[in-house]
Structures are given as C-alpha cells and as structure tokens.
C-alpha cells in the first residue's frame, strides 16, 4: 500500500532520512519507534505530502505520490497530482488541528462535501455515525475550544475517518493529552484498527499500545530502519543492541 524506494530527505545541510526502503501491505498496522529526531515524523509528513522528498520515490496504493508520469518520464509531482493521490490518505495530528472556526459537525462534513463532493445530508449522516463511534454524539454543535484534549482528538479521528481513507497516519496522537485521557483514545484506535481494513502508519511512544495493535514494528535510528520485526519479537528479544537500549530507556521513564 505504501512503498518507499531509496527515499532521502534533507533539511538544508541536515540529512534526516537516508536511502530509506520499506513497504507497508494493505490493511497492515505498522508502528515506527525510535528516539526523537530519528526521522519518524518526517516519514508521516512525506506520505501526507506536507514535506517533499529530496531523493527517491514514494508510491501509495500503486500510484506515484512524490512523482508523476509525464510523457513516459517520471517527474516531480505537482500540487494537482498530489491533491488527487492524497484523497486516499488521512492523518491524525499530535495537536489535533481541528478548525476552531467550525463546530464539530462542520469539521466532519466540510471536506467530504467540498472535496469528495458528497451531499450535505449524506455527509452529516456519516458524521453522526462516526461521532457515535468515537462516543461524542452529544457534541455535534460544540466548538472545538469547548472540548477537552481527549474529546478533540476523538473528533480529529472521526474527521479523518469521514474522508474514508485507505491509509491513516497517526502522529504521536496521545502525546499532547493528559495522562488519564490517553487510554481511552488508544482503545478507540485499537477498535478502529481491528474493525476496518485501513492501512495504518503510526508514530508513538506508547510501547504497550504498539505491541498490542501492530502487525509490524520498525525501529528507527539515524534516518535508517535498524530493525523491522513482529512486535512480540522486537519487544521481547530484539536483535540490535540499539533497540534494546532504547526500549530499556523508554520503559525506565515509565
């Protein structure tokens, strides 16, 4: 579903990703772990086209994302091409990024109506179902600013789902939440992962969640995948010393 071929990304003189190769199969739940600054979030931002690759090629669902074909040659994708491809991709942000100028309902219907061209009635019906799913059907008319962080993140998850994405990117979705709200959001995500065939790419520091829900976990360091394994294997008997020390440090922190 997602394929990185020799992807490199630099910010000025700083190289964040270096010749990165990996694939994510349809319906798979892949979690990226690693120390901060290792390039995990950059990967999500590249898939969401919030950043552009420096070198290499990204494809999503068999279509070029970073590039496009023109006259039989591969050229850098323009905004129009990326807009088309990214309709299949959704993202949930660390800071929720709800639109404060819209009520909850409009946050959920805006893009389905204007981008996907759904009828308002259809979009609203779907929005209500999703709010039921995330347990916030009483907040239809609330402003985002009236909601707690946990509630805002649930709305953001519903908003991403309203676009019926094939791929959902989760960028440290619980990092900005109060500790007591984390479990609820994670349980919701687990539920969604189990009951849908959406492909997930997830960056998180919640190792318990990662172990529980992932099909595969990739350990990142210095812009490279240093270990790629099933969660049970990676968490209990990692091959690499670097993975071991990272996991130990995370566990000690609590």
């Amino acid at each position: 579903m997602i394929r990185f071929e020799d992807v490199g990304k630099s910010f000025g003189p700083v190289t964040v990703l270096d010749g990165l190769n990996f694939t994510v199969a349809p319906g798979e739940f892949v979690t990226l772990i690693g120390p901060s600054g290792s390039g995990k979030t950059t990967i999500l931002r590249l898939v969401m086209t919030l950043e552009q690759v420096t070198s290499g090629v990204i494809t999503v669902g068999g279509e070029y994302l970073s590039h496009m074909e023109r006259g039989g040659r591969l050229v850098r994708a323009d905004e129009k091409h990326q807009r088309e491809v990214r309709k299949r991709i959704g993202m949930v942000f660390q800071q929720f990024n709800l639109f404060p100028n819209m009520k909850v309902m409009q946050n959920l219907t805006e893009a389905p109506v204007r981008v996907l061209g759904k009828s308002r009635a259809e979009a609203e019906e779907r929005a209500r179902e999703l709010l039921d799913l995330v347990g916030l059907n009483d907040k239809v008319d609330a402003h985002p600013s009236q909601l707690s962080g946990g509630q805002q993140q649930r709305v953001a998850i519903a908003r991403a789902l309203a676009m019926q994405p094939d791929v959902l990117l989760l960028d440290e979705v619980t990092s900005a939440l109060d500790p007591e709200l984390v479990a609820g959001v994670l349980a919701l995500l687990k539920d969604i992962a189990r009951t849908t065939d959406i492909t997930f790419l997830c960056v998180t520091h919640e190792m318990g969640f990662a172990r529980d829900v992932s099909d595969r976990v990739m350990m990142f360091d210095g812009g490279k995948v240093i270990e790629d394994a099933a969660p049970d294997k990676l968490f209990s008997e990692p091959d690499h010393e670097r993975t071991r020390s990272f996991l130990q440090a995370v566990l000690e922190r609590g």
Binding site: R83, K87, F93, N97, V115
Partner: peptide, 9 residues
C-alpha cells in the same frame, strides 16, 4: 496542515 490532510484546494 490540517487542510492538506483533508485534501482541500
């Protein structure tokens, strides 16, 4: 970034 994630023009 939120608007991009929702594919708005």
């Amino acid at each position: 970034e939120g608007t991009i994630a929702l594919s708005m023009t």
